[in-house]
Design a protein around this nucleic acid. Structure first.
Lengths: 342, 342
DNA sequence: ATGAAAGCGCTAACAC
DNA sequence: GTGTTAGCGCTTTCAT
C-alpha cells in the first residue's frame, strides 16, 4: 500500500491535508474559533463544550496544521540552528543542549549544516529565514556581509555561539577562543616545555581553531618562545588525521617535547600514535588538546585539555533566545583539565 | 540595539513579517502572480518582466515566506527526522547523510530527539506531523501503537532506519541487528574464545542493542556455548560506563577470555581499561564492539567490530523518501572489521 | 505572458 | 462563553 498525497480527494477524512479544524468544529457542533480556543487551551470555555471538542478531535484523529496556525498568528514555533558540521560531536552537543530547552517550550529545531563554508551558511540562513523562525542560533561570529545583513534585518532573535572574539549581531554565548589558546600555551610553558609544536586542521575554514592558534602563538611569544614545528592538514579534524600528522611531524622534528593540537580529535589521534609507537607520554612528549571530549577524559592517561561547556552553551543560547532579552554577550568559560599527558 | 518584532508597524518595510510578495510586485509594476512565477522560475515570463521583478526583490531585500507558500501549495519542503539521541555520534552521522541529500533537493530537516523514550517519540511524531512535513524519517521499528497509527495515517512517506528486524510502516532502510549479534558471536567462536562475556547498556530503551544481544546469545547457543558473565549498566552507553563495567566484570570473573560490548563506546571504554591495567589484548582478553566508530578504527589496536553504514543509511533513506517509491525494505549491511582486539 | 480572484487552515479581533 | 468575519502571504486556476 502506497502512502503519499496521491489519491484523489474522497471523503472528508481523505482530502488534501486530512482533517481540519472546521471538521472538528462541525463534528462537535461548535464554531471554529471555539474549537480553536479549546484545542489551544486558551481563553475560557464551558466544560461541556471543551469535552465535545476534545472528543471530536480525538475521534477524527485531528492533527493541527501549524503551518496555517503560524501564518495566521504572529510567531512560529520553529527555531533555526546552524552548525558547521555534524561529524564532530561538539556540534551535536550544542544541538542537544538547545533542543532540550526548545522542546520543553514547544519549539522545534530546524537544523542546517554549513560544512564550514560561509557561502553555504549564507544560503542556509536565507533558507531558514524563509520559514519565519522565532529565532536563529548559529555557531560562530564570522559570516559573510550578506549573512550578517539578513540576520540583523530579520527582526528575530539571533544567537551566535561558541565564540566571543569579535562583534556579534545580537546575542552571543560562548567563550574566547583566543584566550583558550593562550591558556593552553601558558600551561605548557609553566610545565617547562620549550620545544613546542602545533598540529592543526583546515584553519581557513575553522575560524575558531585559527583563533585558538593565534592566542597560543601570542602567549608563547609573551613567554619568549615560538613554535618549534607545525603541521596543518588540509582536512577536517579527525583522529586519523591527528595520528598521521604527529607521525609526520616527529619524523622531521624528533626534538620537540610538546604538541598543542587544534582539538581533541586530533590530540587523541596523536596520543594513539604515541601508544602504538611506544613514545612515553608525557616524559618524552606532552600532548594538549581542546574540548574535553569523552574519549579524551577517559583515556588511559586522561588528555590534558580545555573542557568546553558545549551542552550548556546550547541550552543557554536557547534560553536567551526564548527569553527575548536585550542583546549582549554571555560567557560560559572553558575549564582547564590538567590531565596526564602534560 | 534590540531586535525582535517589538517595534510598532511603521513603513511598508517594517511591518510584521517584512517585505511581502505584493510589495515586490508593486515595486516591479506587475501582478502578484507574475512576481510569484518569476521568483519561482516557473512558467514563462518576458525577459524584461523577469529582470524587473528580480531587481525589485533584490532592492527590497525580499525573503519569501515559505509558511505561506506551503499553506497555499500542496507540499512542504520540511522533512522530520527523529532520533533517540545526539550524544552518540551514530545519530549525527545519520542526520548528516540525510541532510546532505535533503539540502540538495531544497528540503530542510526538522530534528526531534526522543532520548530513547517511546512516549517522547509519540509526542514528537505528533508535533512534527503538525508541520505537515513532506516525509518523516525515524530511527528504529519499535513505536507505540499510536505512533504507528499516526505515521501510517499521515499520508506522507515514512522511512524507518537502522533496523530490519520487525515489520515497517512504509519504507525501511538498515540492517538486521539480530544478525549483527550473530555474526559477532560466530567471529568470537571461530577464533576459539569460549569464556565469553557481554557488557551492555540500558537494553530496555535501546531496542536495537537488545536485538544484537539476542542474536549474539542465539549464535552462542548454536555453537554450544553460553554467556560466561554479563554486566549491563542502567545508563546510556559511554566510554566511561564501558570502562567501569569491564573493571567490575573482571573483578568477579577473572577467567573470561572475550567480551562482546553493546557498542563501540562501551568497547573503547573496555579497551582503555585494559590499556591502563596492562591487560594483554587480545591474548589475555579479546574485545568486540559494534559500529566501527572512528575512535575504534584508529585505536593503537584497531577494535574488532562491525562497521555500520550510518551516513549511507541516512542518505539512502532521504533519497527513497524523496523518490516517493513503493514501500519496501532496503538493506545496507554492516561490515565485519577483523581488528587487532580479537 | 500576465493579472484577478479564490482559497490553503488557522487565529484574532469583535460582536453577541 | 461562543460565533462571525477578516485576514496571514502565498500559489493556483482561469481569463485575457
Amino acid at each position: 500500500m502506497k502512502n503519499g498525497p496521491r489519491q484523489p480527494p474522497s471523503g472528508p477524512s481523505e482530502r488534501r491535508g486530512g482533517i481540519t479544524l472546521s471538521d472538528v468544529a462541525r463534528e462537535a457542533g461548535v464554531g471554529e474559533s471555539t474549537a480553536s480556543r479549546v484545542l489551544r487551551r486558551q481563553g475560557s470555555s464551558a466544560l461541556e463544550t471543551r469535552e465535545r471538542v476534545l472528543g471530536a478531535a480525538e475521534r477524527l484523529g485531528y492533527v493541527p496544521n501549524r503551518i496555517a496556525g503560524t501564518l495566521a498568528s504572529t510567531g512560529s514555533k520553529l527555531v533555526g540552528i546552524i552548525v558547521p558540521s555534524l561529524a564532530n560531536i561538539v556540534f551535536p552537543d550544542l544541538l542537544r543542549g538547545a533542543d532540550a530547552v526548545l522542546g520543553e517550550a514547544g519549539f522545534q529545531s530546524v537544523v542546517g549544516v554549513t560544512d564550514y563554508d560561509l557561502d553555504t551558511e549564507e544560503r542556509l540562513v536565507e533558507s531558514l529565514l524563509s520559514w519565519r523562525p522565532a529565532g536563529l542560533m548559529i555557531a560562530g561570529l564570522d559570516h559573510t556581509g550578506r549573512t550578517r545583513a539578513m540576520l540583523a534585518g530579520a527582526g528575530i532573535r539571533v544567537v551566535e555561539m561558541l565564540d566571543t572574539d569579535g562583534i556579534g549581531i545580537d546575542t552571543v554565548v560562548g567563550f574566547s577562543n583566543r584566550e583558550a589558546g593562550r591558556v593552553s600555551a601558558r600551561h605548557l610553558l609553566a610545565r617547562g616545555y620549550r620545544r613546542i609544536a602545533y598540529i592543526g586542521h583546515d584553519l581557513a575554514r575553522d575560524r575558531r581553531a585559527a583563533k585558538r592558534r593565534d592566542g597560543f602563538l601570542a602567549a608563547l611569544a609573551e613567554g619568549g618562545q615560538r613554535l618549534a614545528a607545525e603541521d596543518v592538514v588540509m582536512a577536517h579534524s579527525s583522529i586519523g588525521a591527528g595520528r598521521e600528522a604527529l607521525g609526520r611531524l616527529l619524523a622531521r622534528h624528533a626534538d620537540i617535547d610538546a604538541v598543542y593540537f587544534s582539538n581533541d580529535d586530533m590530540a587523541i589521534g596523536g596520543y594513539f600514535h604515541c601508544l602504538s609507537q611506544g613514545i612515553a607520554v608525557p616524559e618524552r612528549l606532552a600532548l594538549f588538546g581542546f574540548n574535553g571530549l569523552d574519549v579524551a577524559l577517559h583515556a588511559p592517561q586522561p588528555l590534558s585539555t580545555l573542557l568546553t561547556p558545549r551542552v550548556a552553551i546550547g541550552a543557554t543560547s536557547a534560553r536567551l533566545l526564548l527569553a527575548d532579552e536585550a542583546p549582549g554577550v554571555t560567557t560560559l568559560d572553558f575549564e582547564l583539565i590538567a590531565g596526564a599527558t602534560t
